[in-house]
Nucleic acid binder design. Structure first.
Lengths: 233, 233
DNA sequence: GCGGATTGTTACAATTCGTAAGATTCCGGA
DNA sequence: TCCGGAATCTTACGAATTGTAACAATCCGC
């Protein structure tokens, strides 16, 4: 179990360094960016657990970015801003941010708030061994898929890994790279096609229409998104 | 689908009233308590979705209560405290609180933070991002366009980027340059044709009459304007 | 070892999306 | 009104990406 990944997006290098140091000392992996475009590029490779975002960015509107992040990525977003007005905080939170920290801040408090986010994000990962989604029930302990009519279909270990990854991050873009990372371990060269095959086989077990998949969507050049309302138990 | 329940635990009646009023106006059910023992008694009957807790209680240690709440009940806990020291905040968050608001506070911000907690508590029910315009419905999460008669058309990621850009700035001129910037990133020279093709393909999916486009209007020498009454949800 | 299931690999089909190139449209000047 | 150049639209093609069927390697219980 690797350490949680926290991203820092701020145009001031001094703040990036301060946060990086504090977070790494607290045991987190960090990545920091000075511009929104760099950050967005990196999002295609990995999916962070918590994103710290400064609103005053040189190249993009921070609030729009926060909105997209919260909605698409589903990651926890903490705004760090110099704007202290109540209205700023309210709109920031309303747009999907999970927390709003005002500059100047204490690194210790930022760390504590990051931990609070992770704590609430995590419980799903240690949840039970069954998950329901869109009429299906997945029993990971028995390697069984049950559809709405009660019919059972067995799935293999490799298929289960992919399915679990999807069910733990529903409605979020999962990049091909981060998929290889959490699954296959060492990402080989031509090995990457194995990923496609796994997903293909999983899709047939979920009876997806190849022309028009409803649950596992492919994002050309980026990765996959699992749609479906998941509830673990 | 009943309204979420928010509990208020504070020994000052004025604050209880202020919060109760603001939260009820925001559409929440509320219960308020002046003493920890009353609150604990109530917990045996119902399980709140979010708990607002003041740390300075007459009859019990607030931090211990917060710890118990977070651990056993699994509910979201927001501390409201007059103690502004960083150390207080850190230990409060460390003990399981989800947020820490310092007195004096704005009711609007409290409501926003309560909403933020609820949003993350029920992440699976979050409806995808959709926009309606002129009989069409765009589901950005499912990459689907639905026309007035209910017929579905899939759109690709690149097409979705363009569509989103239009829907976020309806009835405004969008210059070619700003389009390249928000989309393709580096604005090249001969790349600008790619933009045209994207728009062309999007127009076909929107069944635009090439001679007389109703939705995506070209402004010769300037850019594009998306006409259409957009409403997001 | 044998039969079956699982999983990676390969080869080829299908899709996406940018580029090129010709067709079309726009607009100012004659 | 007509003309020419520039801007834009559309179609076709191709490179890169992804889907999947078929085959091969591996594993496991009997």
């Amino acid at each position: 179990m690797t350490a949680p990944l926290v991203t820092i997006l701020d145009d001031e290098p001094a703040i990036r360094e301060m946060l990086t140091e504090a977070l790494q000392e607290a045991g987190f992996r960090t990545m920091s960016f000075g511009r929104a475009t760099e950050f967005e590029a990196a999002l295609l490779q990995t999916s962070p657990d918590v994103c710290l975002v400064d609103l005053s960015l040189p190249d993009k509107d921070g609030l729009t970015l926060v909105h997209r992040l919260a909605l698409e990525q589903g990651a926890s977003v903490i705004i760090i801003s110099g704007r202290a007005q109540v209205q700023d905080r309210v709109t920031g939170l309303e747009l999907g941010a999970d927390d709003y920290i005002i500059k100047p801040f204490e690194p210790a408090e930022v760390v504590a708030r990051v931990r609070a986010r992770l704590r609430k994000n995590a419980p799903m990962e240690q949840a039970g061994e069954t998950a329901k989604f869109n009429g299906w029930t997945a029993h990971f302990d028995r390697y069984m898929l049950i559809d709405a009519s009660g019919e059972e279909t067995a799935f293999s270990h490799a298929e289960g890994e992919v399915l679990r990854l999807f069910l733990e991050r529903p409605k979020r873009l999962i990049s091909r790279a981060s998929m290889q990372e959490t699954l296959g371990g060492a990402a080989g060269e031509s090995f990457d096609r194995a990923m496609d095959v796994r997903i293909s086989r999983l899709r047939t077990k979920l009876r997806e229409d190849p022309k028009n998949p409803q649950l596992i969507k492919t994002i050309y050049g980026a990765g996959y998104i699992f749609l479906g309302d998941v509830s673990w138990s």
